[in-house]
């Protein structure tokens, strides 16, 4: 049993060490040894990426490290995820994310996305410069539990409010939690526009989603 545990910890370490080849190799070996894909995801890949998120919060890791580590995470995730999907009956919480209209900066959003996905959510990424109509359309079709919007530019913040107003108008607001983030956003702004929450960084976003989707 100890040998198996060692392998599990190695996978976690490979993610933190940003090694995509090693992560994939170790995941394959672990599967061959009969480990459940769900366990590999929950006990190795997700904790690994979570630690990366914490290193990022402490500024020990920076944008390049997080993106590289996310490649390692996905190298393992892409192997186990199809195996889990066919088995699992449990539905994952769905999150839609996007950068609002008029803003084409999306590196920050991409980091948030990885960490949300690595925490076991089903995430759909609408990309950048996303119009209010597209957000509404996606919510209508996908019915996610959470809508996450970000912006790096003060001047495009108005579109966050626009999306929320449109959700209210379409009577869709009650069924969805809306969270916002990005450099010019703060708690006060989130409250003012009627969002359900604001997160200062990527790890906070994950915690926030967990908090608001309980119950």
């Amino acid at each position: 049993m100890q040998g198996v545990n060692l392998k599990l910890d190695e996978i976690r370490k490979a993610v933190i060490e940003m090694d995509d080849v090693k992560t994939a190799q170790l995941v394959n070996t672990a599967l061959k040894q009969g480990l459940a894909p769900q366990d590999i995801l929950n006990n190795c890949l997700i904790p690994g990426m979570k630690e990366v998120g914490e290193l990022f919060t402490r500024k020990e890791y920076y944008v390049p490290e997080v993106l590289l580590a996310s490649e390692a995470f996905y190298a393992g995730f892409n192997i186990v995820s199809p195996l889990i999907k066919s088995q699992s009956t449990e539905k994952k919480t769905k999150v839609i994310i996007g950068v609002v209209k008029g803003d084409i900066h999306d590196i920050g959003k991409n980091i948030v996305k990885v960490l949300i996905e690595a925490s076991g959510y089903d995430i759909m990424d609408l990309g950048k410069d996303v119009s209010t109509e597209r957000f509404i359309k996606a919510v209508t079709i996908e019915k996610p539990a959470v809508l996450a919007m970000s912006s790096l530019m003060t001047t495009t913040l108005v579109h966050m409010e626009e999306v929320i107003k449109e959700l209210i108008k379409k009577k869709m607001r009650r069924n969805i939690k809306v969270i916002v983030g990005g450099a010019p956003v703060n708690e006060e702004f989130a409250n003012r526009i009627g969002a359900d929450g604001y997160a200062e960084d990527a790890m906070q976003a994950v915690k926030l989603i967990k908090k608001i989707t309980i119950g």
Binding site: K101, G102, D103, I104, D129, M153, T155, T156
Partner: peptide
């Protein structure tokens, strides 16, 4: 120049 600045608000 007293010109509008709205065009700088978004891409």
């Amino acid at each position: 120049l007293h010109e509008p600045v709205n065009g700088f608000a978004q891409y």
